[in-house]
Design a protein around this nucleic acid. Sequence first.
DNA 1: GGGGCAATACCACAAAAGGGGTATTTTTAA
DNA 2: TTAAAAATACCCCTTTTGTGGTATTGCCCC
Lengths: 211, 211
Amino acid sequence: MEPSPPSRLLLIDDHRLFNDGLKSLLDAQTDLTVCGQVFTAADALAAVHRLAPQLVLLDVNLQGVSGIDLGSQLIHNFAGLYVILLTMYNQPKLLDEARRAGLHGYLLKDATTDLLLKGIRTVLNGGKFFALNESGHFIDRFGDDFARRLSLTFREVEIIRLICQGLSSEQIADQLTLSVETIKTHRKNIHFKLGISKVADLIQFAIKQGL
Amino acid sequence: MEPSPPSRLLLIDDHRLFNDGLKSLLDAQTDLTVCGQVFTAADALAAVHRLAPQLVLLDVNLQGVSGIDLGSQLIHNFAGLYVILLTMYNQPKLLDEARRAGLHGYLLKDATTDLLLKGIRTVLNGGKFFALNESGHFIDRFGDDFARRLSLTFREVEIIRLICQGLSSEQIADQLTLSVETIKTHRKNIHFKLGISKVADLIQFAIKQGL
DNA sequence: GGGGCAATACCACAAAAGGGGTATTTTTAA
DNA sequence: TTAAAAATACCCCTTTTGTGGTATTGCCCC
């Protein structure tokens, strides 16, 4: 190892305790320093500009603002900046979204500290680090054939999200410029695939999946 | 100050990073030591028995298990044990529930570290510490009259819970030995009070409130 | 002892959701 | 290049929700 100064990290997460705790954890590492903490999306750009961190650890949920959007915005505005998404959602779709948005990593909040450090160091060395929890809660809870049943299509997931926002089939049809009948068909298929029969079940399902 | 050994704390939260971060934060205090960490509700009782902590910091959401239930269970099983609920729900109702369940404190995850430490020390000295975030997201999002609108009755909350479990009005009526019409009336009132009009909205609301 | 609230219950009608089909086109992958 | 999968769309009919009312009972509190 060459004697280089510790890498500068910026934490963006509106859960202050999590943010503080993470700082404490990371500061304990000799090769890493937390150069700043941000608690709202609004402060993020200014903070990155002022503190010039090498890497940003970014939560997905910042009072309604999408962490993925903010992350890709940061990357486009600050050349050479690394962004790792930190989330509690054990969701392949979300991971894919993060990857497509050009982010450098995706880590779960229930990851071990070791995994976090490994991820940070990998990204600082120019790599990418995307990790889900293989033995995630959800899969455990629903048994063997769940993964098969979960093979929802893109459209289906899209419609689930809109249902969760409280839209009726008609409103969804409007928004997607489709027939109401099509939406109804999708809903039927979703119900069949998930083995449910009510909106209530669907929302519960969706929220457990992290939308 | 008398030269007493540091107080022993146990952390119960299934978000490992949060848990680890908190440990790191707390260990930095000379008068506090984290004597253990637990990531699932199932391990909680055994851990308390083995580690004999003075105070437990407990998350509300442990894979479906209610932190409040677990907390009051711990208090009843271990005399003298203090339990502080840690949650991201900025919710007076939940706070009241925690208080009624006999827990010793309620703190938000987006509290400052100072507030957390103050809460812990207050409870360790035999006090109670219940804090909400005055400028919290949730209240902001719904305006001034939200608190008034939120004055749900016991029956209403009970019915919301059953709706969330996917039961129809008829099934709820059966279970509570009431007329379907009565359930419908309650649902109307709930919708009015919360300013919503769909099951989807209701479930979202309920989940944000921590059920 | 009367006003307010919670809980119960009913009617009627409109709007959605749920469930049973079938069918066409486009996209994807073997 | 062809067969499967995904996305689109329609029909019909039932059940459940949603919304507008009204009304009675019991309870607490001032």
